[in-house]
Amino acid sequence: MMENTENTYNRGDRRNRGNMTKMIEIRDLTRIYGDGAEVRALDGVNLDIGRGEFLAIIGPSGSGKSTLLNQIGILDTPTSGRILLDGVDITKSSEKERSRLRNRKLGFIFQYHHLLPDFNAIENVMMPLLINGVKRSKARKIASRMLEEVGLFDRMDHRPNQLSGGQNQRVAIARALVNSPEIVIGDELTGNLDSRASDAIYELLRRLNREHEQTFILVTHDEAMAAKTDRVIRIVDGQIVEDSG
């Protein structure tokens, strides 16, 4: 029953993608590493991602999928090419502007949750808001609502070492979404979790995607999880070899 609903949703979503406004436009993106031996991590990548999409980037280890994610996440700069985020060319942005864009437009969820160990769950979720200059009392209200959405309202005073792996990843999701970013990036976000916890996290992301209409980009090598997304982009040797969209 659940699968049917999912499939119906996926089909409907695919059908509508043609009408979606472009959230990310990537043109001729190349990233070369190394001073001596040259490694072409991305090689002339072209890609459009619409607002509200829920897609997966898959590929073998070292294929360049995380590099692409780092480029979209404004954590790294390309060797050549352009990335337009909501119409803004981020490859030309200043360091300050890049920080601001990361804070306001992007949310990150990594394989390891990277929660601040000295802060409890709600303080971790509040952090992006505080960085954004939101007042403490207001940030607390928004963060507690977000924790409620991920089902951890009763764990808000727990520190990361007092929570399970799945719970920490939920807190990390709440933190990634608290600033209402337009793009949410997940890098192997269920890699450290068992299949039950992974499914729960996937369902949570799906629901949030439906409710908040944010763009979700998940990097994974889990083919089963990728198959559940609306669009699968396969990368091999720094080039897109397949795009189900």
């Binding site: 920080s99 864009l101 990361r102 804070n103 992007l106 990277h114 601040l116 952090m127 960085i131 933190r175």
Partner: peptide, 10 residues
């Protein structure tokens, strides 16, 4: 690194 990803400036 995570603080930077969250938008904390240098």
């Amino acid at each position: 690194g995570m603080l930077m990803a969250m938008g904390t400036s240098r």
